[in-house]
Structures are given as structure tokens and as C-alpha cells.
Write a protein that binds this DNA or RNA. Structure first.
Length: 116
DNA sequence: CAGGTGACCCAGA
DNA sequence: ATCTGGGCCACCT
């Protein structure tokens, strides 16, 4: 909209967009982890960036399906409400106890395995 | 420009 | 079992 705005960094956004793309591909009732997505993108050491990407995730990106390696809702606090993440996951048919997804290994969705 | 932070992960003690 | 350190890269002050 604004022409006087500064240009964005295409390289950085490429990584972020990649994350969004993978997250959006996560099927309902499934969950993934930051490390898995980072690994799929080829930078498993940059799992933190995946989290940052979620911070700026646009609508349509189910960030609530992305958890840490332990299956814990580490980012629930960053949602509109701390309950939103768990509620969404439970609505997808997942069981969340004490901010932790049950049967995480069963519901785990690995992009590198499913897509590749 | 430099330093600190972060929705993480792994390895070593 | 817990604690500490290292690493990655974008963003903020």
C-alpha cells in the first residue's frame, strides 16, 4: 500500500514463508515440532527461527499445531489467550494434559517424512 | 554498529 | 535425574 515503505528482505522472508507453507500443510489432528520443520528446511539448528516465524505467522497458519520436541505447548503463552492453543488442539481431537500433548509420537507429523 | 533476546535442540558433566 | 554450555539467525534496543 505504501510506496515509501522500505523494502523487505527477500532472503529472510523466504525462510519464514517456507515455515508457513509447511505449517499450513500440517493435517488436522496432527502436530509437528520446530526442529522437524527446521530440519525439513535444511537448518535443523535454527529451530528458534521457526518459533520466531510463528510469532509473525499470518492468518491461516495453524501455529498451535507446532510444538516443541517434547510435545509441550511452549508457545501457548504467545497466543491471544493461554488457553487458545490447548482448546484448538483438543478441538482437533488431540489430548492435552498439563500443556503437553498425549500420544505425541502418534500424532507427530514429520514434513521430511510425509512430504519427502 | 554492537549486544541481548528468543514459541528450540543437542551434548556433556 | 538436573544443570550448563554451545549453536543458529532474525528482531529489538
Amino acid at each position: 500500500m505504501k510506496s515509501t515503505q522500505q523494502q523487505k528482505k527477500p532472503q529472510a522472508y523466504n525462510f519464514f514463508e517456507n515455515v508457513y507453507d509447511v505449517v499450513k500443510l500440517i493435517p488436522k489432528g496432527r502436530v509437528s515440532s520446530y526442529g522437524a520443520i527446521a530440519n525439513y528446511l535444511g537448518t535443523k539448528m535454527s529451530a528458534r527461527m521457526v518459533g520466531w516465524a510463528m510469532h509473525g505467522a499470518p492468518k491461516g497458519v495453524p501455529a498451535h499445531r507446532v510444538l516443541n520436541r517434547n510435545g509441550m505447548l511452549t508457545g501457548k503463552h504467545h497466543f491471544k489467550t493461554p488457553n487458545a492453543m490447548q482448546q484448538l488442539l483438543e478441538k482437533e481431537g488431540l489430548k492435552v494434559i498439563k500443556d503437553k500433548v498425549q500420544y505425541f509420537s502418534e500424532k507427530f507429523w514429520d514434513p521430511a517424512k510425509e512430504l519427502g
